[in-house]
């Protein structure tokens, strides 16, 4: 345990620690990220876009007890499906979860780094970060990823946290430059994000009950998959369904596969009856 651990390093941030001492471990490092030089998109974007798996529609909806956050399971590489079971919704700590859209590799790395970041801060300082503090920190991490975004390795998170002090769920969205915006009701990002938002705009109500919020989230994902090739709908043959988590005062709770399947069985039956 030599110099880097001691030194006069003061920050309680694991991200800052890596940036200073082990930049090679940052998401997507070793490209231009380490030099900090942005490569013009036309030089690299096409190649990068086609070879890296991308993740697609994820969304979050506020309801009476907090937030439900959900995502589809498909990753694509160009016109191929790279993965049918990818997980895009991550528990970060007991009060927050995040969903990702963009290049799968750096996205998953960022989720892992963000998990370590929050736990690291909590252990060093003895208290967890506030909900707002977590959202801001994630914005800084997205900002640091900007050079990679120019190369087509976009990482776009959607953050859902339960604010213990205010006793309410909160949703934050980001832009590529690290801008952070709070959403009051719902939001969806990714290639099918617009389709999902359209569904939620029509059916969202304030202070919904838990089953209604889950139903709305899963319906929005279904409609997004209907219109967007990059988003996977429920795969009835293989039994693969979108995943969802509740972010509430009780912590982060995974919604069971059975519950999600039941919602889709009903939804599909209703759609089928319209076709008859």
């Amino acid at each position: 345990m030599k110099s880097p651990y001691f030194s006069d390093f003061e920050s309680s941030s694991f991200f800052d620690f890596l940036t200073e001492h082990r930049p090679g471990l940052l998401p997507g490092a070793g490209k231009t990220a380490s030099t900090g030089r942005a490569v013009p998109p036309e030089q690299t974007a096409q190649g990068a876009h086609l070879t890296v798996p991308h993740a697609t529609t994820v969304l979050a909806v506020k309801y009476r007890d907090g937030v439900v956050i959900a995502g589809d399971r498909r990753a694509t590489e160009g016109f191929q499906i790279a993965d049918r079971r990818i997980e895009k919704v991550f528990k970060i700590d007991d009060w927050s979860a995040m969903a990702i859209a963009g290049a799968a590799g750096p996205c998953i790395e960022m989720a892992k780094l963000f998990q370590t970041e929050l736990e690291h801060y909590e252990k060093l300082e003895g208290v967890p970060l506030s909900c707002e503090g977590k959202a801001n920190k994630l914005g800084q991490m997205v900002k640091a990823n900007l050079p990679l975004a120019f190369q087509g390795l976009i990482v776009m998170p959607l953050f859902a946290g339960y604010d213990v002090k205010r006793s309410e769920g909160r949703i934050f969205k980001y832009d590529l430059a690290g801008g952070r915006y709070e959403e009051s009701d719902y939001h969806a990002i990714g290639s099918g994000g617009k389709d999902a938002r359209n569904t939620m705009r029509e059916h969202f109500r304030k202070n919904m009950a838990e089953p209604d919020a889950l139903g709305l989230a899963l319906t929005a994902l279904y409609n997004a998959a209907d219109d967007d090739v990059g988003t996977g709908g429920p795969d009835l043959v293989r039994g693969i369904y979108p995943t969802a988590k509740f972010v509430t005062a009780q912590g982060i709770v995974d919604v069971s596969d059975e519950k999600i399947r039941a919602v889709y069985d009903e939804l599909i039956a209703a759609r089928r009856s319209k076709e008859a």
């Binding site: 345990m1 880097p4 651990y5 001691f6 694991f14 890596l18 082990r22 690291h120 252990k123 060093l124």
Partner: peptide
Amino acid sequence: KAGIRHADL
């Protein structure tokens, strides 16, 4: 603190 950095890294 050094130990936590070592472990988390």
